[in-house]
Every structure is written in structure tokens, then in C-alpha cells.
Nucleic acid binder design. Sequence first.
DNA 1: AAAAAATACTTGGTATTACAAGGTACTTTA
DNA 2: TAAAGTACCTTGTAATACCAAGTATTTTTT
Lengths: 109, 109
Amino acid sequence: MNLENTQVQMRKGVLEFCILSIIARGEVYASDMLEELTNAKIMVVEGTLYPLLTRLRKAGLVDYKWVESISGPPRKYYTLTDKGNQFLQGLRSTWNELVTSTNTIVNHV
Amino acid sequence: MNLENTQVQMRKGVLEFCILSIIARGEVYASDMLEELTNAKIMVVEGTLYPLLTRLRKAGLVDYKWVESISGPPRKYYTLTDKGNQFLQGLRSTWNELVTSTNTIVNHV
DNA sequence: AAAAAATACTTGGTATTACAAGGTACTTTA
DNA sequence: TAAAGTACCTTGTAATACCAAGTATTTTTT
């Protein structure tokens, strides 16, 4: 049990929330997401992101379309479905409740 | 993929942080922790808590002593070790960073 | 006193999932 | 044409929350 491992654990679940939030703002492809997550210091690697995107699509939360790139292979651009939008709203509540609950515990006098 | 499942995922890792925080405030046994976590709306069941406490003890973060109860079987009262205290301080940083990072993503305009 | 309920802790088994490592395919550059 | 870059995918592993059932002790009920 080390700190790094716990950091990984803490991020689980939150990742899904972040990715759906990013897609909600406009069409993006995987590298866009990776860049934004990295900028926010939420470290994710391809091996995590791609399977997660596949899961989200199978769950009907996101959709994608192939778009030719002017410099490189085609990309999958993702968008949120109606269902994904509803789900995201639920996640916002869940996240806020988690933060509140956790702060209640750890700041308890 | 459903909302409940994601709520579970979000809580992972945070649990460790909450439990160490509770133990840091004074000697408690498992039912005390369950009650406090439940009050804060962080749902945990025995099957989650006991293995987690065992992991924390094996990692040298917590220690316990048996104490006779005036009404029921003896209880394991937990305390934080020095190592556990240091670890908890690291978790505080990790938690604050996670909240900041996540809010950066999801509140991005 | 025996049976039932309550309290407290423990233990397999399963499902989920982040990550490492390696792979496929296409495009651009040297 | 070869090398480098870009983009997406897949297999295997480790960690761990939860379910379900079990053990042990004490208290309450019959």
C-alpha cells in the first residue's frame, strides 16, 4: 500500500465524469481528451482511455463519427447522446455529494 | 454501466482517506466507523470495511487492541501509527488536488 | 436452561477496471 | 522507400468493493 496506488484509486470513477464533461462541450477525439486531462493534472494513458470510451459507447452514453484528418489517419470524434447528457447530470450530483460527504468526514472536529 | 456503479467507483480510494481520518480523531471500532460513514452518506458495508482495515494494518498504517465490551463480544479498537499519520497527510494533498483538477475539467467554460 | 437474537469480526468468490505492453493501420517526412 | 509520427485497439495482470455466508461471543426471550 503506497500513496501512488491510492491516488489511482481516488481517480477511479471520476475519470468517467471528466471525460463525459469534456465531450459535452463539443466534438473531440481521444488525443484532445488526453491533452486536456493532462493539463488538469489528471494523468491518463491510452490504455485506460480507449477501453473507457468503448464502454461509454456500448452503454449508449456517447456516439462517434469518423473524420478525415488533414495530417494523419482518420479520427473518431465523440459526441454525447441524450442519454449521456442525462447521465452526466446525475454524475454532477454524485460528485458534489461525494465532495461534501468526504469533507464532512475529514474536516469533522 | 449505470449510475450506481459509477457512484461506487467514485468512492474508491476516498474510503481509505475517510477511514484514516476517522481513526485519526480517536480510538474507534468498526461499527463506529460504519455509523459515521453512513451518517455522511458514504455507504459502506462490512464486507468492504473489514478487509480494508486488515490491509491498513498489514501496511503498518493502523494498529488495534482488543477491548472488552460491556454489552457484547470484544471489539478491535483502532489507532493511527506514525506512519499512518504521515500517510494521511499525503492523502489530504492528494484529495485536494483531485478536487481541484476535477473542477478544472468539469467547470471549464 | 435452551433457543433465538444481537453484536462483532472473518472469509471465499466474483466483477470491475486502470494500467503496462505490445500491436495494427494510415500518413507524412526524410 | 524507409523512418517517424499519429491514431486506435487488444491482451493480460493486479487491485479491490461487494455479496454471501460463516464463526464466535454475549444478551434476550421463551
